[in-house]
Design a protein around this nucleic acid. Sequence first.
DNA 1: TATAAGATTGGGAGCGCTCCCTAAAGTGGA
DNA 2: TCCACTTTAGGGAGCGCTCCCAATCTTATA
Lengths: 344, 344
Amino acid sequence: MKRNKLNIYKIAEIAGVSKSTVSRVINDKAGVGDKTRKKVLEIIKDLNYQPNSFARGLANNKTKTIGLVVSDITDPFFSGFIKGVEAKAMEDNYNIMLANSHWVVEEELKCVKMFQEGRVDGVLIISGARDGLDVYLNDLSAKNTPVLLIDRKTDNGSIPKINVDNFSGAYMGVKYLLDLGHKKVACIKGDDVASSGASVDRVLGYKKALNDFGINNEIIVPGYFEVEDAYKATHNLLEEQKDITAIFYLSDMMAIGGLKAIRERGLKVPDDISVLGCDDIELASLINPPLTTLRQPRYEMGYKGMGALISILEETNKRINHKDISFNMELVIRESTKKVNIVD
Amino acid sequence: MKRNKLNIYKIAEIAGVSKSTVSRVINDKAGVGDKTRKKVLEIIKDLNYQPNSFARGLANNKTKTIGLVVSDITDPFFSGFIKGVEAKAMEDNYNIMLANSHWVVEEELKCVKMFQEGRVDGVLIISGARDGLDVYLNDLSAKNTPVLLIDRKTDNGSIPKINVDNFSGAYMGVKYLLDLGHKKVACIKGDDVASSGASVDRVLGYKKALNDFGINNEIIVPGYFEVEDAYKATHNLLEEQKDITAIFYLSDMMAIGGLKAIRERGLKVPDDISVLGCDDIELASLINPPLTTLRQPRYEMGYKGMGALISILEETNKRINHKDISFNMELVIRESTKKVNIVD
DNA sequence: TATAAGATTGGGAGCGCTCCCTAAAGTGGA
DNA sequence: TCCACTTTAGGGAGCGCTCCCAATCTTATA
């Protein structure tokens, strides 16, 4: 029956059983005799039959795919997360639907809408909008599309989150700089309204470290997490304050921009000035000089995040409370930092 | 009728019309009165109704999603393509299903299988396997899942492809080096079995340029498109042949590895040695020194590729022959190359 | 005013699958 | 051998949508 297409009926017909039996076999359910199961399995394999996921999705309202929203896929900072997410997805046979939000909330919303129409089981959002107001997240999670946030904050406590301890990380990094003898340490911060809150927390860590060392000379300049802005900020900063001996960039990409400016001013890293980055993107170790930085375990965070989302999706009792997970940063010492020169 | 879920029946009920009419409105089809259409549209908007894409997919066998297979999402080389693909997809309301093949054919196949089960309308493959044998592509395209290849070759002439003219690009780059007066130019090639054929074609361009300049001293060493391999290769090369004045790396990432080795040997770029990269990844302009390289218009290629795939998917007569598209490389001159020192 | 042509609308069937309920077949103990 | 119970299998309904065809309502034309 049913034309000549390869569907469950066709398999059933060939195997001489009913579609129900085939369905049971496909879904590995009990209630099928061994011989029958084996025969059906064989036919499925021979014909290279793939059940139609739309019909499946329609029938049981599950899709085995999750939506992944990322601010900028081109940014090496993100790809680390994605790789982790992707690995876990592959492992558990989930598909990933990808969308780019270009850092703006409206686009984020658009992506999410698209996903809902595309019926994903859940949504994973990594970092995200620069410009606040993500109230739509509440709607989303209320509408029982499970959401999980990586590297992002919200007020909504019921949305599970995976974050890194930015405060402690920054503290550790700046303390390291101060231990090296630096007295005048500048901080090129990111974007205070960024939804991850990373910039704010790291700045806090920076301040705490200075404070603990009895230094009250805070030099904080915005770099907006952009190479270009950090480049300019560095030029300005060094123009105005010649005695800075170390700069803490709140992202490696910004540090790369800063390095360029420092170079252009005829200064040497780390001899004249020490540079500390943040994130440990692949490139950090490849540039000249290799960057000392605070590693953020992005692959692990992505992997764990996807795992957590899957477990939420697959558990029957969705009411279980998922604890947020926090990772620690790790100081990776390379060649862009050294003991301060004993001058005066 | 039909429980309380928000579906086409519900909308129809509220609007006091039939589901058929609602369907027509949703799909923007003719045959609906203006008042009716307006009323339905309003209700849809008020209730924030999203048609279920599975039901749609089931009913008309279209999904508005494409599968994207990429070798390594973490590699900055790929993200440029992806961004272009993504932009075009968003524009035309297509979803992207992402998968990582980690350079191996088996994983590629696995991704594609997953996609088929996930019922994508078509598949876009960017570059891909290092290890030949992609006969499965024939099956795929025979099974009328349209496939489009970016930066990749196959024997199957019926699969549309988007490529860059690697031969001419490399020729142009090496000619530029030779015009600068370099006589001993080495080439760190990629991977000859890579499915893109990029390495092979670029090497050909390199050879042709040398030949045209009457130089028969070809120095070709494999770097396998890996930072680490290129790093080692460069060390070996410079150890053995001290008089090399320029090196052409067949990828920017390899050039970055090479730069590190050159630095470690106490050589200066571009004073002692000129370095030419290939691809023009974002980082090329940010490193020290900014890299002279051959730009590959990845964003455009991705965008065009997605566009071509969509047009294949949406045209009724799938038999139309799609011509392959070829892009040109562009020489981007920065600071890693200069005129050869007049020594002897 | 009648009537054909056209614009609207409604309803049924079907897309391929899962779930539920019932029927048939098999199993074992008295 | 019979009955109660378990295992295995089949069929119908439904998931939410689109497509096709027939029914109804308009409108224009003679």
